[in-house]
Design a protein around this nucleic acid. Structure first.
Length: 425
RNA sequence: GGAGGGAUGGCCGAGCGGUCUAAGGCGGCUGUCUUGAAAACAGCUGUGGGGUCACACCCACCGGGGGUUCGAAUCCCUCUCCCUCCGCCA
């Protein structure tokens, strides 16, 4: 949620920001109009309430029955006017709130302006594209050949786009998750294990609702929504709280499965495990003071890079342009790793500074040490990393001519005696 | 799933239709005293909204929502959560 006061005071700035996102700026006019109506109604209804409060207090003290009765009747009338105006006010507020809830975050000034992903900017590439003296296979060939990815079983028990990991494949993914979490702990994050289902209010707070309801799975009978990313429950942890300045920053890391209903086009990303309705991810998340968020952002990007680097993967950082930014983000860097088998850069991480956008929705504040009034915190999130794609990259980069896969050094503590994944393992 | 009991400020806890402007205690802040500290004493100590150049002032909030009433922390309905007991369960 952006600040209604910002729209009121600097409407042009908001208009410009929305245009950069390829959006119509009509919501600005509508918000201004509703805000004006809202304040007008508040003035009316509150002055009536002040009158009623004062007179009701008098009534309590009045002895003369006639005088008392006259005032009661007068106030009954005032009460009716209050009820009518309150009704109008609620209506206007609901409209304004609904409108504000669908306005995306404003891009930072330094974000490159662009229409769509074709205008994203590669900031740096680390490592060289690996060379093979044989034709590297894609994971959808490697995995089944090694018996570690089974597409048929996933389809059998759940449906299209689901798969089963087996043996060393399942173990390799578990190793990645455990190793990543341990790395983030060393980087200063506190590990969290959260519910994988949350209430609607938490989905709203994290910015998933109401706009992206189509992409979420939910329980039909209860107010339970399956998380599309750990960012959601982590945002919710501090919902409605006022922290002390000394508590900040808070750095959290969490592993969760992620559930996304997104409708996927038939021709795109259909092969392999790159995109599914369920995937695992290790997430980094921060709550910090507003003035600290730019530095925290750079640090989080570096933390995600370290994961790629220690895995020995070639990666690049891609800055999203204004037209490609997510709903809640004011700046985002995607990290992509090279997958030599399928021959493409795979997005394994997306790191965003959300500013106070989620903090406003979830109402997370902190009280400055000088005792001044509470301010919204800033939040940041970043994958560290997304699982199936990291798994793809490991399999495709570490494959050998005979179809076996060498286990990266850092993962070996979790792989038992398996240093090389072969078809018989 | 069944039966009962609860939810009040940062914390504990009173209040059960008008003087609640929410008692009292604890904690915190400021001041007096002190070389300093402690103790004692005095004052202050929530959030959001409206309003104002800034004040003043006004409105709302006693778990959430709705209702009754001139007036609700207090009465009614409903939801959520917590506790106790029974049942079921990894």
């Amino acid at each position: 949620m952006i600040d209604i006061n910002l729209i009121r005071e600097k409407p042009e700035l908001v208009r410009e920001a929305l245009r950069k996102r390829q959006m119509d700026d009509a919501p600005v006019d509508r918000a201004l109009e509703l805000d004006l109506g809202r304040r007008d109604l508040i003035k009316q209804v509150e002055s009536l309430k002040a009158e009623r409060n004062a007179v009701s207090k008098e009534i309590g003290k009045l002895k003369d029955p006639a005088e008392r009765q006259a005032k009661i009747e007068a106030m009954r009338e005032v009460g009716e006017r209050i009820a009518a105006l309150d009704g109008q006010l609620h209506e206007v507020e609901a409209k304004l709130e609904a409108l504000m809830a669908e306005i995306p975050n404003l891009p930072e000034a330094r974000v490159p302006v662009g229409v769509d992903e074709s205008h994203n900017v590669v900031i740096k590439t680390v490592g060289a594209l690996p060379e093979f003296d044989f034709q590297p296979k894609a994971h959808w060939d490697l995995g089944p050949a090694l018996g570690i990815i089974n597409f048929e079983q996933g389809v059998k028990i759940t449906g299209s786009r689901f798969y089963v990991l087996s043996g060393a494949g399942a173990r390799l993914q578990r190793a990645l998750i455990a190793w990543m979490l341990d790395l983030h702990i060393r980087q200063g994050y506190l590990e969290k294990y959260t519910p994988f289902m949350v209430k609607e209010a938490v989905m709203f707070g994290a910015g998933q609702l109401p706009k992206f309801a189509d992409n979420l799975y939910r329980d039909h009978e209860e107010d339970l929504w399956m998380v599309p990313t750990a960012e959601v429950p982590l945002t919710g942890l501090l919902m409605g709280e006022i922290l002390d300045e000394a508590d900040l920053p808070l750095h959290y890391a969490a592993y969760t499965p992620c559930f996304r209903r997104e409708k996927m086009s038939a021709g795109r990303d259909v092969r392999g495990i790159k995109r599914g309705h369920q995937f695992d991810k290790v997430e980094m998340y921060k709550f910090c003071k507003p003035e600290d968020s730019p530095a925290e952002f750079e640090k989080m990007v570096a933390d995600a890079e370290q994961v790629c680097a220690e895995l020995g993967l070639t990666y690049r950082i891609n800055q999203l342009c204004t037209g490609d930014l997510g709903f809640t983000a004011q700046i985002t860097y995607d990290i992509e790793v090279w997958a030599p088998g399928c021959g493409e850069w795979l997005e394994v991480s997306s790191v965003s500074n959300v500013g106070d956008f989620q903090a406003r929705r979830a109402n997370v504040k902190y009280r400055p040490a000088d005792g001044s009034r509470p301010r919204f915190v800033h939040t940041l999130n970043g994958s560290g990393l997304g699982m199936p794609r990291t798994l793809i990259a490991v399999l495709e980069n570490y494959q050998q001519a005979d179809g076996s896969v060498v286990v990266p050094e850092v993962l070996r503590p979790w792989m038992g005696s398996i240093d090389v994944i072969r078809s018989e393992t």
